[in-house]
Amino acid sequence: MAEVKELVNELVDKYGRERKSLLPILQGIHLERNYLSKEAMLEVAKQLDLSAAEIYGTASFYSFLDTKADGKYKIRVCKSITCEMKGKSDIIKTLEDMLKIKVGETTEGKRFSLLETNCLGLCDQGPAMLINEEYYTKLTAAKVRKILGEYIRNKY
């Protein structure tokens, strides 16, 4: 709790207390904590003199602001039309098999979450995915096995 408070304090000092600072502050928390906890949102509400419901309403509008704890590594597979044409469903299937979860789920121990996402802007290099901030393009099942394998081995 105290930690969240400190983090929010830091971010508020950096970005300011006005409403316009809300997104950078929420993103700052997200970057550190991987999601926006209830405590964090309440602290932001207090510091910015906004209602907690409004903070939640704003956060829940955006795809990259999560309000519940999920995987340390978030795998976002692009599901837009060109990635779909280039074999997105194979990629998803490979990931599901390897992680033993379905799209929208998180592995036990909260290591990986598997998500589909709208256009990543990598349409000329599809299928594409993001794992946290890293992007991977021209995916094949074999490539996915290699990439994810490395995550499992090295970054677990």
């Binding site: 949102m41 209602s51 419901a53 409004e54 903070i55 939640y56 309403g57 509008f61 955006y62």
Partner: peptide, 20 residues
């Protein structure tokens, strides 16, 4: 000025709801 209710989520899931 209570703001107990807010608009949450987006698109087809958009609804009027409360904090979390």
């Amino acid at each position: 000025h209570v703001n107990a209710l807010a608009v949450t989520e987006r698109g087809r899931d958009m609804k009027i709801s409360t904090f979390m």
